[in-house]
């Protein structure tokens, strides 16, 4: 505790959508990835400086990939202030699975701030997410933001936006 705010942020998404690699470039890794496979969660730290608005420390709970929340993942989500929802643009089914996760979280923990990212925007030729998925998501209240773990596109912005939302609360 340094006097800055600290908030718990969970990272959710289907299998192999690139959750860990998306946040890995922008966080301070404290624990090995092996925790993700053994315990089902990995903790990373991200300090976001928002200038005049102060700074915030995000405790990022990178939860192992899933298309539905089981008991353990629900337990990991307990007490979270916000979450990052991540899908894979080259596998459109990950969009619908992310929508399911989003609904589950809201059903259990109420409306929490979140940011939705569609990863692998660098793979244009394999992109599968079309108008249908975008529309369905919009109906569910989700605006997907394309991003690339490879290039870093939009990842930092998304996390900063989430941090700003938390500080504004």
């Amino acid at each position: 505790m340094t006097g800055n705010r600290t908030e718990k942020v969970c990272v959710l998404g289907d299998f192999a959508v690139g959750k860990t690699s998306t946040v890995a470039r922008f966080v301070h890794n404290e624990f090995s990835d092996k925790y993700l496979t053994t315990v089902g969660v990995k903790i990373d730290i991200k300090e976001v400086d928002l200038g005049a608005h102060g700074s915030i420390k995000l405790i990022m709970w990178d939860i192992a990939g899933t298309d539905a929340l089981d008991g353990l993942q629900q337990a990991y989500l307990r007490g979270a202030s916000a979450y990052l929802l991540i899908a894979d643009g080259t596998r459109k089914e990950t969009i619908s699975n992310a929508l399911n996760l989003h609904r589950d979280v809201q059903a259990i923990y109420g409306k929490l701030p979140f940011v939705a990212l569609v990863n692998k925007s660098d793979l244009d030729s394999e992109w599968e997410v079309g108008e249908d998925e975008t529309m369905r998501s919009r109906e569910a209240g989700i605006e997907w933001l394309p991003c690339s773990a490879k290039s870093g596109e939009n990842v930092e912005n998304a996390i900063r936006s989430l941090a700003a939302t938390l500080i504004g609360q």
Binding site: V39, I59, L72, A75
Partner: peptide, 17 residues
């Protein structure tokens, strides 16, 4: 902060498992 979070995660893991 990370240790605290991980301890909490392990607590949940053991409890659930």
């Amino acid at each position: 902060d990370a240790i605290s979070a991980m301890f909490s995660a392990l607590q949940s893991f053991v409890q659930e498992s």
